[in-house]
Design a protein around this nucleic acid. Structure first.
Lengths: 217, 217
DNA sequence: TTACTCATGTAAGTAGTTACATGATTCC
DNA sequence: GGAATCATGTAACTACTTACATGAGTAA
């Protein structure tokens, strides 16, 4: 149930509306955890009834109101509890690698398309993360500033260091993905070179279809 | 909807019961995709009504029967279609990295515990995958043998190479995770050295709790 | 007045988890 | 006779996705 704890952690930096929280999931927590507003609003209500957060109704303009949430003591305790607790690692379930296991059902060109897409995606992620790292190091995101403003100065190094380390891990992971995709592209070249098949024909069809082709030939 | 396609791919190697399929998710597809039997049986029924697979009822012992499923032509086409299709990458959502971002709410010792756990988990995964790679290279899993028996000999190199490449990618990724956890351990040592805090006290508490502590001191 | 951002929701559906449940067969 | 394995389900729940829905405030 990490959405809940991501929200608690954000709210520890200061009171926010659901809308503002949702935006943090696009920019700052950005590319570390994702959640759409349709998931956030109900979760905030649940956390409120659970006593983890409390809302203050603020006016906006003439008629409107908005609800700014902040941590309660129970919420702060729950946040600390969660950080201490070990996660039981989630079972592997990676669609890209699963599919890569069956590329023989497609052509060499299709395999290339997949690897290129994979490489491009992870390159882009890498850049986002790297950018975020330098912003953290310069301490110039609104969130890190709010957070450091509340913590004793001698803790700032540690606060920033943990965040930088996490994002660096994501960068390294992305680098591994890019390297994997590039080795994949070389592999396809090598396999193509060793085989007589045209580059746009499947290496081998699923059995039921292969039987058919044979029958019709 | 990758469970469905994992099942189709397994069934292309030959007819299997739900029970046998479930076991493949523990051994061979092992550590690449996970699914419990409670998810598999209903999915098989759905695929059957969708015409992607068909069941043959086989006797077992005196009284019992079991249902062995095999691909239909539509199922084989769906498998080929899925392999050709590009996945839209899932948004990042990693509980371990999310938590690592907030280690300052815990003690140095707690951070160490998390990094050690992370390292151990990914080391273990690495070993499983490496073992599977050598089995694939020796072509000595039941599944790869069934699969190769059905494919033309000149395609065998490609079939095995794609699978090996996928598992190698997982090994490399795990290696990156282990390295990250180890750098994390060094980081904690460094931070501890630079700080006056005892190793079993949080660096900084969530604000609501910090306020309290200050008040009571 | 039009478009954009702020702001908050609901509803239907999919995927996956955890627990409960049952019964046959096989091996010791 | 008991334990392990084979075999197949259901039910309740949680997390997440996608689409629908509404309205206020603000700047061109």
């Amino acid at each position: 149930m990490s959405l809940r704890h991501a929200l608690l952690a954000l709210l520890d930096a200061g009171a926010m509306t659901g809308y503002e929280l949702a935006k943090q999931f696009d920019v700052s927590v950005a590319y570390l955890w994702h959640a759409p507003h349709s998931q956030i609003y109900p979760e905030l209500r649940r956390m409120e009834s659970g006593g983890l957060i409390e809302a203050e109704s603020l006016p906006r303009g003439e008629r409107g109101t908005k609800r700014a949430y902040s941590l309660t003591e129970a919420g702060a305790r729950e946040l600390a509890r969660w950080v201490a607790e070990l996660e039981t690692a989630a079972p592997v379930r990676d669609p890209a690698y699963l599919k890569a296991t069956y590329f023989e059902y497609g052509s060499f060109d299709e395999a290339r398309r997949h690897f290129r897409e994979h490489r491009n995606h992870h390159r882009a992620m890498m850049q986002h993360w790297q950018q975020h790292i330098s912003r953290l190091q310069r301490r110039d995101t609104p969130l890190i500033q709010r957070r450091l403003a509340q913590a004793p100065p001698q803790t700032h190094e540690t606060v920033v260091a943990y965040k930088v380390h996490a994002y660096e891990g994501l960068v390294e992971r992305a680098r591994a993905e890019v390297a994997w995709a590039e080795r994949g592209l070389s592999l396809v070249d090598r396999l193509e070179h060793n085989s007589a098949r045209p580059r746009d024909e499947p290496t081998t069809l699923p059995r039921k279809l292969a039987d058919q082709e044979t029958a019709s030939t």
